[in-house]
Amino acid sequence: MIDCKIVKVNSVSFKYEKEWAIKHANFTVDKGQFVAMIGPNGSGKSTLVNLILGFIKPNIGSIQVFNQSIKQFDDWKEIGYISQQVNRFNGGFPASVLEVVKSGLVSRLGMFRFLKREHTQKAIEALKIVEMEKFAKAKIGELSGGQQQRVFIARALVSDPSLLILDEPTVGIDAKHVNDFYDLLGRLNKKNGITLLMISHDIGTITKHATHVVCVNKAISFQGTSDEYKQFNKQNFTHVHEHMDQQLIHDHVEVTS
């Protein structure tokens, strides 16, 4: 039987200095899923993504990506990564949109191989997917936040990855373009068959689009389908609501008495 697990996180723990940021995390991402990783600020979502990408090493546990340990992983063309780029990159960088997208081919080409005309064509095709081909010659810093994020998606797509990892990509994008962005991700997942793992704190929106949800709060508190999550959330919300109602009644009684 073919193993369709693209990411396996096995009992991973990680600490910064003295404090544990991730404790005994276990979860998997299967081929074709659109996984939303949600959790409050400081819950360890980005740390977990950094561990999956091998930017940092776990203190305990192991991570496998495409059935390879991340420590020895070298098939980087299979992974596209989109960070909170809009907030972080040097807006004055003198690169054209086409140059930025072509730089996504570095993982596919490897060392000592040059970019050729066919690669330019491939970059333009990637720009067409995100409907940005008419901006190919524009400078990256001259685009809006939403347009820049589309360019970074094109850069991630140009190497034909099987897995796309997105770390809060909607930060810095204005609200009216966020829905377009999710529609694009949905198309990539359903039409192009790309597996998606996306961090977001916009729980309401992402759970509408994702097929699966992973809740992180240092440990993994939930993993399942979006429908299962809605059920789980409803129960928890009802529980919280009941608690708040009781608190209100209690306060009201105290005030009136």
């Binding site: 690169a95 140059e99 730089s103 490897g110």
Partner: peptide, 22 residues
Amino acid sequence: VLFYKELFVLSFDEDHAKVSGV
């Protein structure tokens, strides 16, 4: 000339350079 694309990626986005195997 040999390392142009690696130098470009490193200059523009170090995180992307890491996930490109540079």
